[in-house]
Each structure stands twice: as structure tokens, then as C-alpha cells.
Design a protein around this nucleic acid. Structure first.
Length: 794
DNA sequence: CACGCTCTGCCTGCG
DNA sequence: GCAGAGCGTG
């Protein structure tokens, strides 16, 4: 009997293994391991998402069927044989057999799946629905970002924390403005405390769950930090007064809620049978605390990540979370996914050679059964224009001669400032491209203004938004008036808006009272309208009543573009109204705050993609260019000069960059580079130097070739809307250097100013500006073509 | 109070 | 190279 039982369990496991035959052994193990803490170390391109999706599908359909050794009663040899033979059946017939053996399948609503981006959350939901079908209830899973999940929880319990249910969410810009107001109000020296730096400091404190009092306690005698602590304290007070939370607060407040109200926490703990966290290497301390809280009921916590791809320390991520997960949960099982399905052997080796220099990492080594492929290409060029031309040239050749498509190519750079020259090159040669990152739609002034109006309509106590738009368009309400309003508000404990409404009763405001009341009346009317009308109507009325649309209509080309953006916002609103279950102004504001610009990266469009390496994490491309393989660019100047501890992160970034490539990888180093208005001369990046020569193909420096496509006619349809294609003569000109251009550091002589040393050289159309420190007269900026500079040989 | 000019400072960036 | 902040003037 027990032999038969064994045989049955064996056959069952074999059938599951067969069903998951598209997975490798460790991947299957990850799918089967449902209980207790589990850490999956998923190397780049190791099929992480596939595992995540199949694991969740598995718990919903089969529960613990695989590991459980339950055996049906009255088991017969015939049953066991049938199970053994099922292996030869098609998958559609195997599924019901497996389902019939399900043990405690998990209802979807008891699963919590946390991701970092909305894009990842959506991809997860889509793939899961494809896997298990609509009816299985994939939509009932709590899947979302940390922030969207916290938002959901906080809306329910905001009152307990002293917030109204309709609290607003401040983004970085709002926070920065609020902080700079606080700095001014506290009369601190603004030159010592830049709002950006203070915000980042406060944000990091929040990431680590340090509240203002604890912060002040910890800083001791450090004068500046003490000031920051006081700013932090006041900032929090004002956020609450404005009924607002910033992004960090959303996590912190949720953790606080759970600490204060254990009975609420246990509701969630009892609900979530399984908790999964993706991109665990990018979590911060607060997020870890929240994760531990939420999974605390059943302790079935799975985290997935790759410590080698931790590249967000600068925004608070602590790689320690993933490095010490097994210390936090000593019974945690660790599964490593080391087989890479993406890249060729050479590319993978390059990546391994780069990352192996890092100290703090989980030991693992990616491997592939793919062939070696091409060597990694290393190209040296003279300047950023030649760099762009090399990219253009390579893409043209690939498309014309090898039947490549434009979308096979990606250009990944360290910083957005590098994109300019490449964009110019691509548009000049009519190569279709799309660029990700840079200024986002929601960051545009007109969009922020419109959103600020909507926020104010929803929540009158939002002082920050009020300040933003009170005088936009101009209403003759100046800084002085606002200061008085704000002072009264602070004294009387009201919102700025409330003070404005009653400005007639304050002598200091009597002269401007009419204007202020006119404004609050308008907002009040719009708020009333929002109660009864559609969102689109409120939006339209707002643009009209505030005079915002009129202001833009009076303007020129730039304003026209802004109007178009406002129209686009309107269609976003319409889209939201149609899709949301219960559309409301508050709902729209919440979505806009938490859902960054809908991913505009349309993978179907045939165009070269340009983005930063950071944004490329998680993506892959057949051919990848990495321009700017220069010291001081990548690794970045600040990592080298200011913070050597950042170097490991730069190295991980290099690892991420290299592992994006499937087939071909081009590293480009430029001898000189025009960046931030001055020319730099940097040696080859150390990361390129880490790649062994056997797998490297160093291409000759050859600049003449780049002009070979110049005569190609440019089709009008190919001209990008925001990148006017330059005339051919200009194109030629910008590459010609007839003057002798001094390099920074060169000694020069000027007929009037005498001897000096060049500190920077910047390119301007058809000329250069040299910044020179003269021995006698100090620093001068000179136009190279005009100033008769002589370069001294040294 | 509004406008236009100069000055400055700059990496990466999800919610 | 460019945007946002600061400053001076009408």
C-alpha cells in the first residue's frame, strides 16, 4: 500500500514537472515553494516575471498540490497508471487533472503582489489573466505599487491619523516648494539650506522611518542638521494642515497606522495568505517594515530581486534588505536563478567581469547555453557628434544590409544630458526614434497648474497648490499679500484659503480683499459644480473661469503647445471617467498622483529607443549602444570625486546596462565631450577596461566615414516634430573645426590680457567660448574666433 | 506688481 | 545649454 502511495506522489510530481517543462529546475522549485519566507535571487534575464506569474497562478489553481503528500482514499494501481500516462496528454487535458488534485487553492483576493512601477503591476496582471483566464479572478488580486496599496489602505483609515479622507498627495516639486517656504518662514539661511538638499535629507529620514523628534534627537550638536530637523518638523506640521501627504509619507503613515492600531493590521494580516514583493533590491527600510507587517499573519512572504541590479540607493533603497533577508528570516529558503536566456556568452561574460569587482553581493554567476556571439564592440570617437554619427552609421548599415528594424536598437546613457547630440544625429539622418524620460508630461508647467486648480477645487486647505496658481494667470495678487494671508493663517490656525474668504474682516487685507474674495468665490463655485457635474465639465469650466485658457490663447507658439497639452489632459480625464468604476475628482487626483505618465513606450512602433540606463532596467534589446563610456561620465563625476562608496552602485549600473543587450553591444568612448556647456577630456571608462580583450572588438577610430550618408534625401514624413532637421550645409559646418581649439589646462597668451590658463572650452554655433584665468586680470570668457589667443606649447 | 534680465548650478528618478 | 531663481526697474 505504502509503495503505491509513493508511486502516486512520484507520478503527481512528475506530471507537475512535465506541465512546467518550459521552466528550468530552480524556476520550478520557486513555483512550488509557497510557504514560509522565500528569497529568489533572479539574475538579469533569468525569467523572473515568468516565475512570478506562474507561482501565483499555481497557488490559485493548485494550491499546495505539489508538495502535499495527501493521497486519495481507495487508491488503485489503475489510478496511478492513469496519472503516469497523463504525461503524454496535451496540456489542456493535464490542467483539469492537476486541478482535481488541488490542495487548499488560494482565492485571488488573499494574494498581495507588490511591484515598483505601475507598468510592472499591469504586466503582472495581464500575464496572469492570460495564464489562468478571466474567470479565475486574476483581477481580485491586490497587485500594485507600494504607493497604490498604501493609498488604498490610507483612504480607509486616514481619520485615525488626523487626515481627512480626501487628503492630497504632494509630489517632489510640491514638497520642494513647501520646504522652501518653511525655510523662509523659519528665517534660516537659504544659501546654506537648499530646498533640494533638505528635501532629500528629509526624504531619507522618512525612508528610514525616522520621525522629526527622533531626527532632532539623533543630530546632536550639528547646527545644520539641527536646522534641517526643525524644518522637517515644521514641514510635517504644514503637510497635515494642508491635508497632504508626500510620497514618503504614504509608506510611513501606513506603517504608523499599523503600529498604532494592531487590530487594523491584523485585519490585513489575516487577509493576505501570500505576499510577493518584486524588485526587492530597490526597497527602503520603511517598505521593508511594511512588507514585514503585511506578511506577518501567515509569514508566506516571497521576495524577488537581484542585488547586482540595485541602482537606486540615491533615492533611499537599501541593498541590505536583500543582502540580509536571510538574517531577518533565518528559516528563509533561497533560490538562485542563474541561467540567462537573454544574452550571448560574450555579453554575459563582459557583464560578469564588470560586476565581480564588487564586494557586497550574493555570490552567483550567470550562465547561458547560447553561443559566444559577436565580440563586444568598443569604439573610440573624437567627440559627441562623432559618437552620434557612429550610432547613425551602424544603425543605417544594420537596417540596409542586415534587414534589422529600427526598434531592434536602443541607446542607453548615464544621464539625460547626453541625449541631445544623439537626438540631433538621428533626426538629421531621418532615423525614427523615441526618447523616454526627461521632462515628463505631468511635469509641464501648464499641466501642473491645471492639476493644482483641480486639487484646490477638491481640497481648499491645500496651501501649496493655492500658492502655485493664485496669480497664474495674473490677478494682481502679489507676494506681499500672500505673505500677510499666510501669517494670519498661521496665527489663527486656518488654511490660507479660509483667510482669503474672510479677508474683508482683516484690516491688513482690506485693500486686496475684493480680489481675494473674487478668487475664492470662483473656486467655491467650481467646487460646487464638481459635486454635481462630470469631471470634464468641471475641467472645462475651470479653464474658462480662471482665465487660464484665455491667457494661453493670447500667447504665441509656445502657448499653443501648452494648449495642446491641456487638451491632452482633457482626454486623460475623459479616459479616466470612462474606465473608472466610480469616477470622481478625488479619484482622478489620486490616480494622477500615483500613476506616472502612462508608459508611452510603445513597443510596436519601429523606432530606435533612447533612454537612461536607469529607465532601461527590466528591458532588453537585440542591439544596445552605450555612449559615454568615459570616466567622469560613466562612472559619474560625483561618484569619483565626492563619494567613492557610490562606485559599487555605478558598477551595478554598468552591469544593468550591459545585460540589456541580447546580441550586439557597442561601447563608445569619446576623447572629448561637450557637456553642460564646456568640453571635457576623459579617459576610457574603467568598466570598459574590465572587459577582457579576447571578447572585445576594438574598432578603428575613423571619422571620415560618418559623412557618407549625408547626401541621402530626407523625407518630410520622417522629420520629428520636436527635432527640426537641419540643412545639409549646417550639418557639415558643425563638424568642421578650422580654428585651433585649446584644451582646458592649456597655457595661452592674449595680446591685451597677457598670459593665462584655459579652464573650460564650450562650443557655440560656429565658434567656441574659452574661459581663461589670466595672471593679471582674472577670469575672462572669450570668443575664440575674435580673441587673438595664442596657444603656448607646453 | 509685472516684466525682463542676469546668474547659477546641474546625475540617475519610481510613486 | 537650459531652466529656475533672484534682482532691478518701469
Amino acid at each position: 500500500m505504502s509503495g503505491l502511495k509513493e508511486e502516486y506522489i512520484q507520478a503527481k510530481k512528475q506530471l507537475f514537472d512535465h506541465y512546467y517543462r518550459f521552466l528550468n529546475q530552480p524556476q520550478r522549485e520557486a513555483v512550488y515553494t509557497l510557504f514560509n519566507p522565500l528569497l529568489i535571487l533572479a539574475g538579469a534575464g533569468s525569467g523572473k516575471t515568468t516565475v512570478l506569474v506562474n507561482r501565483i497562478a499555481h497557488m490559485i489553481r493548485f494550491g499546495d498540490a505539489y508538495a502535499c503528500d495527501h493521497v486519495p482514499e481507495n487508491l488503485s494501481q489503475a489510478d496511478v497508471d492513469a496519472l503516469k500516462n497523463a504525461v503524454s496528454l496535451p496540456d489542456e487535458e493535464i490542467e483539469p487533472i492537476l486541478a482535481s488534485m488541488a490542495v487548499n487553492p488560494c482565492p485571488p483576493w488573499r494574494i498581495l503582489s507588490i511591484t515598483f512601477t505601475n507598468k510592472a503591476a499591469n504586466e503582472m496582471k495581464t500575464r496572469l489573466t492570460n495564464r489562468i483566464g478571466e474567470d479565475a479572478g486574476a483581477a481580485d488580486i491586490w497587485a500594485g505599487t507600494f504607493h497604490s496599496i498604501c493609498g488604498r489602505i490610507l483612504r480607509r483609515h486616514a481619520e485615525l491619523l488626523g487626515y481627512a479622507q480626501n487628503f492630497v498627495i504632494y509630489d517632489q516639486e510640491d514638497s520642494k516648494k513647501a520646504i522652501s517656504t518653511v525655510i523662509k518662514d523659519l528665517n534660516f539661511d537659504e544659501s546654506m539650506l537648499q530646498s533640494k538638499a533638505v528635501l532629500s535629507e528629509i526624504s531619507h529620514a522618512k525612508d528610514s522611518l525616522i520621525d522629526p523628534l527622533e531626527y532632532l534627537d539623533a543630530v546632536g550638536k550639528d547646527y545644520r542638521l539641527k536646522q534641517i530637523g526643525l524644518i522637517y518638523q515644521e514641514y510635517q506640521k504644514r503637510l497635515k494642515a494642508s491635508n497632504a501627504m508626500d510620497f514618503d509619507d504614504m509608506i510611513v503613515q501606513t506603517v504608523t497606522l499599523f503600529r498604532k492600531y494592531p487590530e487594523i493590521l491584523s485585519q490585513y494580516q489575516n487577509r493576505f495568505l501570500f505576499v510577493c514583493v518584486d524588485e526587492f533590491q530597490d526597497t527602503n527600510k520603511a517598505q521593508l517594515a511594511l512588507t514585514v507587517q503585511l506578511s506577518g499573519g501567515f509569514r508566506n512572504l516571497m521576495v524577488v530581486g537581484d542585488d547586482d541590479q540595485s541602482i537606486y540607493r540615491f533615492r533611499g533603497a537599501t541593498i541590505e534588505n536583500i543582502l540580509t533577508f536571510d538574517k531577518l528570516f533565518p528559516d528563509a529558503k533561497i533560490i538562485k536563478l542563474e541561467q540567462n536566456y537573454r544574452s550571448t556568452k560574450n555579453i554575459l561574460q563582459a557583464a560578469n567581469e564588470i560586476i565581480k569587482h564588487n564586494q557586497g553581493r550574493h555570490e552567483k554567476r550567470l550562465w547561458t547555453d547560447k553561443g559566444p556571439g559577436s565580440p563586444v564592440h568598443l569604439k573610440e570617437v573624437s567627440d559627441q557628434n562623432a559618437e552620434a554619427m557612429f550610432i547613425v552609421d551602424t544603425i543605417q548599415k544594420g537596417v540596409l544590409r542586415q534587414g534589422r528594424q529600427y526598434k531592434d536598437y536602443a541607446v542607453l546613457y548615464r544621464m539625460n544630458a547626453q541625449s541631445n547630440s544623439i537626438e540631433k544625429g538621428l533626426s538629421r539622418y531621418s532615423i525614427p526614434y523615441r526618447i523616454l524620460g526627461g521632462t515628463r508630461f505631468s511635469d509641464r508647467k501648464e499641466i501642473r497648474d491645471a492639476m493644482a486648480y483641480l486639487s484646490l477645487i477638491a481640497n481648499h486647505s491645500d496651501n501649496e497648490r493655492l500658492q502655485r496658481i493664485i496669480n497664474e494667470p495674473k490677478r494682481k495678487i502679489g507676494e506681499k499679500t500672500l505673505t500677510i494671508v499666510h501669517e494670519i493663517a498661521l496665527e489663527t490656525g486656518q488654511s490660507d484659503f479660509a483667510v482669503m474668504e474672510q479677508s474683508g474682516s482683516y484690516i491688513a487685507l482690506s485693500r486686496v480683499s475684493d480680489k481675494l474674495v473674487e478668487f475664492t468665490n470662483m473656486i467655491n463655485r467650481l467646487s460646487a459644480l464638481a459635486e454635481e457635474s462630470s469631471l470634464e465639465m468641471v475641467y472645462e469650466q475651470m479653464l474658462k473661469d480662471t482665465g487660464y485658457r484665455m491667457m494661453l490663447l493670447m500667447g504665441g507658439q509656445e502657448e499653443k503647445e501648452r494648449l495642446e497639452n491641456l487638451e491632452e489632459l482633457k482626454s486623460n480625464i475623459a479616459e479616466y471617467t470612462q474606465n473608472a468604476d466610480d469616477p470622481s475628482l478625488n479619484g482622478f487626483l489620486e490616480m494622477s498622483a500615483l500613476v506616472a505618465d502612462v508608459d508611452k513606450y510603445d513597443e510596436s512602433a519601429d523606432a530606435v529607443v533612447l533612454m537612461t540606463i536607469h529607465s532601461a532596467k527590466g528591458l532588453e534589446f537585440p542591439i544596445v549602444f552605450l555612449p559615454g563610456m568615459d570616466e567622469n561620465v560613466f562612472p559619474s563625476y560625483q561618484a569619483i570625486a565626492y563619494d567613492p562608496s557610490q562606485m559599487e552602485e555605478e558598477r551595478r549600473l554598468a552591469y544593468v546596462a550591459v545585460t540589456r543587450a541580447r546580441e550586439e553591444l557597442y561601447l563608445i568612448h569619446s576623447e572629448s565631450r561637450l557637456l553642460f556647456g564646456s568640453t571635457q577630456y576623459n579617459p576610457l571608462s574603467r568598466f570598459a577596461g574590465d572587459i577582457p580583450e579576447e571578447i572585445l572588438d576594438e574598432e578603428e577610430k575613423e571619422t571620415k566615414d560618418f559623412f557618407s550618408f549625408q547626401s541621402r534625401p530626407i523625407r518630410a514624413t520622417e522629420i520629428r516634430k520636436n527635432g527640426p532637421v537641419r540643412s545639409k550645409s549646417m550639418a557639415g559646418e558643425s563638424f568642421r573645426t578650422s580654428m585651433e581649439v585649446p584644451k582646458p589646462g592649456a597655457s595661452v597668451t592674449h595680446p591685451v590680457f597677457g598670459d593665462g590658463r584655459v579652464i573650460s572650452v564650450s562650443k557655440v554655433p560656429a565658434d567656441y567660448i574659452c574661459e581663461v584665468v589670466f595672471d593679471r586680470v582674472g577670469t575672462k570668457k572669450l570668443l575664440l574666433s575674435k580673441a587673438k589667443l595664442q596657444i603656448k606649447e607646453s
